[in-house]
Amino acid sequence: MRVIFLLFLMFSLGCEKIEKIFLEEDILDRPPSKRCSECHTKIYSQWKDSRHSVAWISEDFIKKTENRTKTKCLSCHAPLEVKAVKKPELRNKLREEGVNCFSCHYRGDTNSIHGPYRVFSPPHYSTYDPDYISSKICAGCHEKTYLKWKESGSVKNCQDCHMPAKKERLIQKFPFTYFHSKKNLHNHSFPSLKADEKDFLINFSIKQNFILMKIKNIKIPHTIPTSQQGSPKYYITITGYKHNKKILEERFMLTPKNGLEPKKWKSFDLFVDDKPNKISIKIDRKLSWSKKKEEILKKDFYFD
């Protein structure tokens, strides 16, 4: 019944007037993200589980910035407005929400919510913004990763991997849920994803007591590990055996500074007193905010 009434209103008054009748002005005043959850329940709950939602209150961030006193770090952890390829300004209110709904979607200059769709959204003004389907929107804060991605020439953008989409309704609140057809709802938990064996080529060559190990990142279109400022790490452990007897153990630590760049071989030199007939390689990773190592791959190589 309500929908029919709305449709009747739309026909008789036109969309512009409807927008004004249903406008909830506080939404355009950067309220707490909880306010958005009234309609965008799914997106809100995904964001709640994301690192973006704890960007300001994360223990690691507080420690690394000496109680948030390294001022140049702050604006990306509580941005006022996230814009394409531009470092944001630090906002004054609700910093504890980190990178919240309004950081990414509200723009003062248009006084509207920006996003990747042209939508009729009576409670707030909306602006279709193509930046949201481009990696550029992430580049203001994730500049280093963005530049490596750009160099890689990948056709996939940041959102393709870190905001995977599912056909769903943007809004869960009645009657607005029926205002739009189902759309690609991008995951706002921003999963960090985990590489695996198929993402790498690994090559060993042995000459006398010299082992050359080469690893190529063939699929991930940015350096691994990557970060703007955090300390994610990859650990490569090489164990060499001669007739089941361990004769070599060597480890390498990769940081964003010396990580595996897309489509480039990285070489590692190893020396042994005796030539091994089996080499095991194990790659682990540790995310920036985590103390736990996770296994990426484990593989054995045999030699005559």
Partner: peptide, 27 residues
């Protein structure tokens, strides 16, 4: 030579590893 190589490669690993600390301020 073998021992020298081991020390040399360890030095390089540790030298590169320093960036973990420097990058916290030099961004």
């Amino acid at each position: 030579k073998n021992k020298a190589r081991k020390s040399g490669f360890n030095f390089i690993k540790r030298f590169e590893g320093m960036t973990q600390m420097c990058k916290d301020c030099h961004t």
